[in-house]
Design a binder for these strands. Sequence first.
DNA 1: AACATATTGTGAAAAATTTCACAACAAAAC
DNA 2: GTTTTGTTGTGAAATTTTTCACAATATGTT
Lengths: 206, 206
Amino acid sequence: MSKNIPEKITNRLTLYHSITVEYMEAGIETISSPQIAQRLGIDDSQVRKDFKLLNNAGKCRVGYLVKDLKDSIEKTLGFAHAKDAFIVGAGHLGLALAKYDSFNSYGLNILALFDNDPQKVDMQVNNKQIFHISKLPNLTKRLGVDIAILTVPRQNAQQVADFLIQSDIKYIWNFTPAVLKVPPEVKVWNENLMGSFLQFACKDII
Amino acid sequence: MSKNIPEKITNRLTLYHSITVEYMEAGIETISSPQIAQRLGIDDSQVRKDFKLLNNAGKCRVGYLVKDLKDSIEKTLGFAHAKDAFIVGAGHLGLALAKYDSFNSYGLNILALFDNDPQKVDMQVNNKQIFHISKLPNLTKRLGVDIAILTVPRQNAQQVADFLIQSDIKYIWNFTPAVLKVPPEVKVWNENLMGSFLQFACKDII
DNA sequence: AACATATTGTGAAAAATTTCACAACAAAAC
DNA sequence: GTTTTGTTGTGAAATTTTTCACAATATGTT
């Protein structure tokens, strides 16, 4: 990524991207900022401001070319820069993410899964093998992977995170509710599912 | 919820909450704003500003009582107001969410799952039954449920959402990458997993 | 060809959020 | 009992984000 795009804009860009995918499938060639804005419940000038980042000019009274828009978003968000990652924890969530093929088109390659349950080891999910967690340090080094998606139970989260850090993992996408303690060079992204839900729920549902 | 708390603050409050849970388990009774701030990589005055919402005074040179803090966050975020919900789509993600017991303590009760696959129907997950999707309208009305967690494949998302809306579902927590078209009275919360990842990835990697 | 209309692009204003700075204070140390 | 220290609470400043307003413009209509 050349520019450091603020989180909120990144988030909106992915939503715009989903809409372009839908329009492409429907065979619609152009889309306007008010159309997108209405769909997402935001201001249309916001959409245009976001698009300015993409260096993708629209046409007055017509809007934007869906295909160009889609390509620009993909370019700006770096979909093409494939990044390799491991899923650590082969429970339902880990398996769900392993099966989530969208990751690939967004530039995230899941290479393998890890678990400490001998029953799960050596199984295959979506063409990805589940290894015993003890194999992780070796494979991390051999494959040069530095991203881990952490989907273990909360109770084990810190302990497993420590192990990942020892194994030279630098980026942890944390799906557990634990707030991990990590050294400054390791970056954590908390998925915080409940936070998301509460934002949703608190707004309207008493 | 009395006050309409901004999303960002709600999100931080849940992270603070996780830390209080951890401190409680560790038997630590007080916590200070700089401690929390450092852990989350944010400014300590931010933490104190957030806490002002909780009506929970700290003590100079000591910090905040962990237990009081935890209780205030739970009260403010309405953990006690149990909300009932259905999971629609019993794939891996749906099953993962059904097994995610934290939902309960955060005030979200998953009552049942729905799927259109006859093989899955009548199975039990974490004491919750999987019903055929055709049973949803009836159960929605009978149980007064108006929240649905949507975990179907993207291709079916809009169609299933339309069906949910017909069945009087008012709140959709959307885990699919589709941007749903809904009437104004229906609220959608897009989980947007890839958006999250890209925010994470774009920042540092590459 | 003139006019009406829908849309972009953008500067300015407004609102929201974060950071800074520091007074007030309570606990601990001396 | 006085000093030092770490922390809260909070106004003010800075920054970021969103909204507003409108000129410019391209398309369709009469």
